[in-house]
Design a protein around this nucleic acid. Sequence first.
DNA 1: CTGTTAGCGCATTCAC
DNA 2: GTGAATGCGCTAACAG
Lengths: 387, 387
Amino acid sequence: MLKREKFAIFVEVTGPDGNVHGDIRTVRMAKQIKIKEIAARAGVSPGTVDRVLHNRGNVSAASREAVERVLAEVKYRFNIHASAISLRKEYNIVAAIPTAVTGEYWGSIRKGIERAVEEYSDIRLNCTFAYYNQFDIYSCRSSFDEIAAQNPDAVILGATFVSEARRLCELLEARRIPYVFVDSRIEQTRPIASFATEQSACGHLCAKLLDAIAPPGSAFAIFNSKRIGNENAYNMLAREEGFRDFFAGAPERVTKSEFSVLDPEEGEREVLRFLAENPRVRGIAVMNSRGHIIADILRRHGIQGVRLISFDTTANNIKCINEGSMWAVLCQYPEMQGFQAMQSIIGWLLYKRTEPAAHRDMPIGIVVRENLPYHREFLLQEAELLP
Amino acid sequence: MLKREKFAIFVEVTGPDGNVHGDIRTVRMAKQIKIKEIAARAGVSPGTVDRVLHNRGNVSAASREAVERVLAEVKYRFNIHASAISLRKEYNIVAAIPTAVTGEYWGSIRKGIERAVEEYSDIRLNCTFAYYNQFDIYSCRSSFDEIAAQNPDAVILGATFVSEARRLCELLEARRIPYVFVDSRIEQTRPIASFATEQSACGHLCAKLLDAIAPPGSAFAIFNSKRIGNENAYNMLAREEGFRDFFAGAPERVTKSEFSVLDPEEGEREVLRFLAENPRVRGIAVMNSRGHIIADILRRHGIQGVRLISFDTTANNIKCINEGSMWAVLCQYPEMQGFQAMQSIIGWLLYKRTEPAAHRDMPIGIVVRENLPYHREFLLQEAELLP
DNA sequence: CTGTTAGCGCATTCAC
DNA sequence: GTGAATGCGCTAACAG
């Protein structure tokens, strides 16, 4: 009834009813070929194979070809453990990002980077964070100059000033220093990878949700904080574009307003005035993480029936979601961005993965009160393999 | 203006306006202590330290104490690379799960498991899949018996028959074979980890969404497929409970119905009849992955204004989301579950992480048409470090 | 240019 | 019980 082979290969199980019930199959690891074996087959020494694999020159055309011929037949993969263990180089990596406050967006990106350093703690990584004020081009420039001065092995860039970023990228490319982007992608640069959310899709989604949850025919407002926040204007504009695109057939349903963050009382007056003047508005989109400010105003003034959606699972926003003053936040998984950015650098530096990876769009998470308790910024469990 | 030390430690950048603009700080890896060093400090040999660390006996009380004293002072961590490389054992792992069809729920779990095997390909893992028919207790029993016969090093269990699962777990515990659950957690068992979604929270979320997107005062229906599907009844019941809980204040708004899957034409008649008899129903929840069947019926009959939410990003459901016949699916990240299950086994077997991990609730994803293109079952990029 | 060799940190014999 | 010795697969320095 049970056919069995050493460690089960294929088994059919026939039950009392005469039917086949089960099916067992084994996925066995293919035996990995080693450098030594490749060397033997190519008639060269392991050292030469290593030189070919890492493209580090000093190999005659003949040897190279011999090795490559073997390589073409077998599918060789580095044993990352053996690599890591025999690699004693220290890597200096700089992350130049806007000031990262714990619990806010850039703080999460930083956390993701730090987690990667932790996760790969068997690799000697020094990570330097160079923070700048994202509303201050001088600080950005100094920060970037400093990076150049450091001459690091790789750079992680959270770029809010496009021109400055381009300048730095040129410099890095000239020095052959690899770099990756987080939270952005900049044309005419050649990062080894970039991680960002498709902002207009976020705006589109935001509109879709507000439209779905508000009474038919409602009007909607885009609220932007005035020049202060923790996001760059570029992202906000792209989101707004996506939002308006959703209502392209009825643009009159979308209004836009601004509110001061620096002067909260003035901001509050602005918001209340706007709502009084626009009674058909039944949904508000705040295109950055400052939605909690609006939520507080709505809550304090007992304004019902106006749904609010904002961005990023910051500490403040989470509070609002929980107390019901905000309907949803859209989440960009900043921790994942940071983690993956560092991962791609490790892949490049250590494992010589030298083709630039395509840009990666991050998932867009929808977080409402009911799934908030299960939401995780960092979606793979942290450092699972660390003892 | 720039203070610098070897590789930047702290830098303040003063701009033309006299303000401080930047801030640079380095996170340097703490130097890890090695077994050799511990041995030296404890006045024993590396071998002895290893024996203590792995609890494998043949150590005098005196040596053990000496080592443990040192261990208490320093925070030692195995170098996973060195461990992995010097560990040449082959591990046989069995995954006993319901028949896994690619593109459906259990197929994704399998994929996650396979990805983990792939990702950790430097560890010798053989994974055997023992599939059973989740509606057939005989097949489950045979499958589980086979597992016992195999005497594997660890087991992944997707358990739909509680009694059978318990019986197997007892057996495994007696033989000290570690096991983990995916998609479930079963009382009175002691898995080293378990990964599952909080099903009643899913139901609750489902209700919240339907309520939000349907006109005020709408009625809602729970549609269940009759005894055929790819989910176990237990999960469906828990979801229903959560759903009803949301409407606890107005239970009359929730109706329930069933439809045949085996006989599609009959199923269609049932659905149409139900909708005709319950015109106030403006939202339908299908508590398993079979929502696409309802979606097709609604679409083919041009029934507008009834929102539909189902579970799992199966190929069929994704199609419906895209064409607009389904409003959302709730997603349980099955691939992640499979991946993490295997990860926790690796952690246990190789890195001797021996405290049972707490149960892990998976995130609950909301997938609508607008964020579908960015949705990823497997949220950390796949095999990023593989060459 | 190329082969040889000495580690990397840990696990596991094998003598003592 | 315990320490010394060997090897895992790969990298890099060193002779030729």
